[in-house]
């Protein structure tokens, strides 16, 4: 039986020194995409349903696979699940599409800030971002993408190869399309449908967010709903 290891710090525990150290080689585009609201981001136009007023049935089981953290250490994706709720997103650090990865990262950083400020949520929710471009998104690049304030509640991961990555993408139904030019060469660009997965401590996917409802308020209410479901 799988036994989770403590990958995230406990809520309220001292922040590790490495998390506080400024990153010297912050890539400009990563900094922009990570910290500025994407042009596409708009305020929510409705009041989301109250926590506990609705159900979030199980959509599918989460999927495991070998991953690498920003220090280059090998883990299993399940090492990051099983103790708390987890928001799992798939990104590509070179992405500058306002409706794509920058939006996801922006929203998830907002969620992380909420976690930081709310002890009641801090013990229940963590955020994991996994690159789907292992050739270019090395651990070092993911560390740069995390930024100097790489949140204590967020983890940025990559994989060692496309062979290790593909079963994970397949398992979550995260389909990516490499773009090719007129001569058939890979341009370095991808198209994909942005999806963020809310996974419960039993490693069950309980919601999947796309652009049109990737809002911190909705995500937090969903987490609160699931906490209430578990008697919290």
């Amino acid at each position: 039986m799988w036994k989770s290891v403590r990958i995230f710090p406990r809520a309220g525990s001292p922040v590790g020194l490495s998390m506080l150290l400024p990153v010297l080689l912050v890539v400009w585009s990563a900094a922009v995409s990570a910290h500025s609201p994407p042009a596409f981001f708009r305020e929510l136009q409705y009041i989301p349903p109250q926590p506990g007023s609705y159900d979030l049935p199980v959509i599918q089981m989460a999927v495991d696979g070998p991953v690498i953290d920003t220090d280059g250490k090998s883990h299993r994706l399940f090492d990051y699940m099983g103790r708390t709720f987890v928001l799992l997103s798939f990104v590509y650090t070179s992405c500058t599409d306002a409706k794509g990865c920058p939006l996801a990262t922006h929203v998830l950083r907002q969620v992380a800030s909420y976690i930081e400020a709310h002890a009641g949520i801090a013990e229940h929710l963590r955020i994991v971002t996994l690159s789907f471009d292992p050739d270019r998104d090395t651990p070092e690049v993911m560390r740069q993408y995390a930024g100097e304030d790489g949140h204590r509640y967020m983890r940025f991961l990559t994989t060692s190869s496309a062979a290790n990555l593909q079963p994970i993408l397949d398992g979550y139904g995260q389909y990516i399309v490499p773009e090719r030019d007129e001569d058939g060469w890979f341009t370095g660009f991808y198209s994909h449908i942005l999806k963020v997965f809310l996974i419960d401590p039993d490693r069950q996917v309980r919601n999947i967010y796309s652009v049109s409802y990737l809002y911190p308020q909705i995500i937090i209410n969903d987490v609160k709903t699931l906490i209430m479901e578990r008697g919290g």
């Binding site: 585009s29 070179s94 500058t96 198209s191 652009v211």
Partner: peptide, 8 residues
């Protein structure tokens, strides 16, 4: 609002 082109 669904498919995104990712580029450098």
């Amino acid at each position: 609002g669904a498919v995104h082109r990712l580029c450098t």
